Computed example of a mutant assay.
Amino acid sequence: MSVDIDITGLRRERIAVVPSPLAELGMALHTLAEPGHHPGLQGWATGVTAGLDALLADRMCEADFLWRTTFSDLFLPCSGIAGGVLPAATLTEELDLLDRLSDEQFVDAALEFTCALTYDSQGPQALSDPAVRVRALELAASRGPQQVRFTKRLLEDPPSVRTWFRQFLEDCDEAFFAETWARLRHQLAADARHKTDLLRQKGLAEALAAVSPMVTLDEEAGRITVDKLTTGRTATADGGLLLVPTSLGRPHLMVLHRYRWQPVLHYPVGSPEWAAPPSVEQLTLRMSALSHPVRMRLCRHLARSAFTTGELAKVQGMTAPEISRHLGVLKKAGLITTRRRGRYVLHQLDVSMVARLGSDFLEGILR
């Protein structure tokens, strides 16, 4: 599974790497709502939450599904403006870009949490199609009264919701985000300069590899593939490609691929101590390898010591070829190591790899 971006005909000058204060505020709100997704930021989240005004904390709950269960495209409004507009340098300027979206664009992006609308292809709009409106309200009802109230307001009076949303974001900026952005923006600007230099000097493939090992370029096919546990497609067409770094976003690697919006890769800034995350295919392979009862029993032995195929066959009451097949599956999944000692071949479980499986799986599904 993956999200594919068709970049046929994309010119180098239409590729930009630019930080976005509004996108980072969206990620800050997500981190506050889901600190479990970001264990390295729990200290920051706890400090911010403790200092919040009670009224603002309550207001955060009114529409937290825009940044908790989804990361709304409203936080990257530059993508929806025709002509390839880039993120602005300040939050105020970015909120001005948000104001430039049409009511239809705003409503459709805000209703993404209901899954009532098609995302990466042409489809009806909520403000003009009664069936979509009914479906959006039905899906919102399944998520609770808070979502129903928000959806009704959004469909009946988009301007009031837009005013509320902008004021809320400005209040968040005053309460905690301005200080956070002042600390983060230099790191994000430095990362953007680094990726831009790679793009100019070594090409798009090198720049994307530096963004994440989960992003690959097939130059012959003119396609960027982002390894994710979802399927989607978009194209730059006669527009551009935007790369937006985030300091608060790991492990999320997001692709904005809304129909007729400029494609955006919203990627976490890397750190030397972070191991490269496994691909969805690797995760599937490892979990499938461990799902068989015989291989689970083999792992119990191989976690304690190194064994030969013959020893394992005797313990398990199976033939050596049968054990070899199971060991081959585990080895292909990268879960065991093999070494030769004289004429014997010893197998042992890679305990560190197995220990990482839970966190790798979580990162994979959150990516």
Rank of each mutant, 00 (worst) to 15 (best):
S2N: 10
T8K: 15
R12Q: 15
R12C: 04
E13Y: 10
R14G: 09
A16N: 11
P19L: 14
S20N: 08
L22A: 13
E24D: 10
L25T: 03
T31K: 10
L32G: 07
A33D: 09
P35K: 05
H37E: 11
H38D: 05
Q42W: 03
T49D: 04
A50S: 09
G51A: 15
G51Y: 00
L52C: 03
L52T: 03
D53H: 06
A54L: 14
L55I: 05
A57N: 06
D58Y: 02
C61N: 15
A63G: 01
L66T: 14
R68T: 14
R68C: 07
T69F: 04
S72V: 06
L74S: 01
C78D: 10
S79W: 01
V85D: 01
L86V: 12
T92M: 07
T92D: 12
E93L: 14
D96S: 05
L97Q: 15
R100P: 01
E104A: 14
E104H: 05
F106E: 00
F106A: 00
F106Y: 01
F106D: 00
V107K: 00
A109Y: 00
A109K: 01
E112S: 07
F113W: 00
C115A: 14
T118Y: 07
D120L: 04
D120F: 07
S121A: 15
Q122G: 10
Q125M: 03
Q125I: 01
A126C: 02
L127P: 05
P130K: 14
V134D: 12
E138Q: 15
L139W: 11
A140C: 05
E156S: 05
P158S: 15
P158W: 07
R162L: 04
R166F: 07
A175V: 06
A175N: 02
T180L: 12
W181A: 08
R183I: 13
A192E: 08
T196Y: 02
D197H: 10
D197G: 02
D197E: 13
Q201A: 14
V211L: 10
M214G: 15
T216Q: 11
L217T: 12
D218F: 12
R223V: 12
T225F: 03
V226M: 08
D227G: 06
K228L: 14
L229E: 06
R233N: 15
T234Y: 06
T236E: 11
D238L: 13
L241N: 07
L241Q: 09
L242K: 06
L242I: 06
V244D: 03
P245T: 08
T246E: 04
S247C: 14
R250P: 03
R260T: 13
Q262I: 02
Q262H: 05
P263G: 00
H266T: 00
P268F: 06
P268V: 05
P272I: 06
W274C: 01
E281N: 04
T284F: 08
T284Y: 09
A289R: 10
S291M: 13
P293N: 11
M296K: 07
H301Q: 11
L302C: 11
A303T: 11
R304E: 10
R304N: 09
A306I: 12
A306P: 09
F307D: 06
T308Y: 00
T309E: 08
L312S: 07
V315M: 15
M318C: 01
P321E: 12
I323D: 13
L327Y: 01
G334C: 03
G334R: 03
L335T: 08
L335Q: 03
R339L: 06
R343A: 02
Q348V: 03
S352M: 07
M353E: 12
R356S: 02
L357Y: 02
G358A: 01
E363L: 01
R367M: 00
